[in-house]
Design a protein around this nucleic acid. Sequence first.
DNA 1: GACATTAGTAATCGTTTGATAACCTGTCAA
DNA 2: TTGACAGGTTATCAAACGATTACTAATGTC
Lengths: 204, 204
Amino acid sequence: MTETDVPIPRMKAHDRRELVIESATAVFGDYGYYGTTTDQIARAAGVSQPYVVRMFGTKEKLFVEVLERALVLLLGSFRRALANDDGQPLQRRLGLSYVGLLEHRGLLLSLMHAFVLGSDPVIGERARQGFLQVYEFLRTEAGMTSTEAGLFLAGGMLSNTMIGLRMTDMDSSDPIAHELLEACFPEKLEVVVELGDTYRPDPK
Amino acid sequence: MTETDVPIPRMKAHDRRELVIESATAVFGDYGYYGTTTDQIARAAGVSQPYVVRMFGTKEKLFVEVLERALVLLLGSFRRALANDDGQPLQRRLGLSYVGLLEHRGLLLSLMHAFVLGSDPVIGERARQGFLQVYEFLRTEAGMTSTEAGLFLAGGMLSNTMIGLRMTDMDSSDPIAHELLEACFPEKLEVVVELGDTYRPDPK
DNA sequence: GACATTAGTAATCGTTTGATAACCTGTCAA
DNA sequence: TTGACAGGTTATCAAACGATTACTAATGTC
């Protein structure tokens, strides 16, 4: 009966909020906006479901927050890669910067989910705006032509699709899948597969 | 009180089934697997909700059916474009064939939704398989190199993203958006915008 | 014209889900 | 020491959703 009353850990609201947004990003990345429940997010963050809802008002506001943070991180990462000129061509620097974002679990996938929800009045509007922001970065800040930017974005969308499909799971077993992945991630496949492994453990 | 009892129209089961699959494709394309309700599909097809469910067993089975039909139509369209050599380069023929699929409302978007649901044991598995099928077509039947196939698929995924974002809605108002769309659909923008108009009326 | 089959609907049910309300409890300043 | 605020929780709810059951009305056939 010696109730060793271990003190319940408490975080500052700001830190907890960050943690919830990160957890939400991961879960939204797996199941999308509609497929994710606030309870899943709460359990991933180690808090109660009502707390998650109250923290952001609604599930939709939380998703928009996730979307906005993802765009900030993406553009920040690109700007750093742009400034940090190590002699390699720009396309490659940005490309590596992009796959580096896989470390933020669910970030690129949450973006991708948002990108196919254009008919939603709130999420769709923000997603369009975000995509245009990225395009404008490539055109003005990175100095790409519209064709170059288009090719770069196309590669990004294909990457997202491969990640979304969990195609890296088939990399070792299926030779066709392996070849496809080689074509999708020229010179960076090892990185992607390794980072992709982080994605494994997530029981619904 | 002369009840002009107009006979309620009835369809053959097969035709009704096709109609429901088409309606489901459209709605799934807008809201994704989780975001779509069987009742939305039922109303779109003009039948009752229980009928939709009983026809396919479960919502998941209906989605898989939609996914499989989409892949059949996609590959069929590609094969026709491949066989029908009008002198234009293959990439362009396949590209036009691809945007032609926009006439099937929701088809490409349902595929896209499936492609980003790779963590789902049923849908994900079928989606991976389907994507590989397309890649294999490009490599073996269409005779592309892995690099060519990768570039082609990348363009396709970018197209899907533009459609999913409803970026064509901003085409006329935002000059940046217009430039982006020009870069995404070289020489086929008019077609896309026109077909995109079909996508307008869909109150939730 | 009976009658079986086919093409549906109406009613309803158990869960799940996002959200609300009410309460609890460390922490810290005065 | 007290009291107030910050950081949570438990209990609960109404609505929405997928699914099941039982029923009904057209259609084709002998």
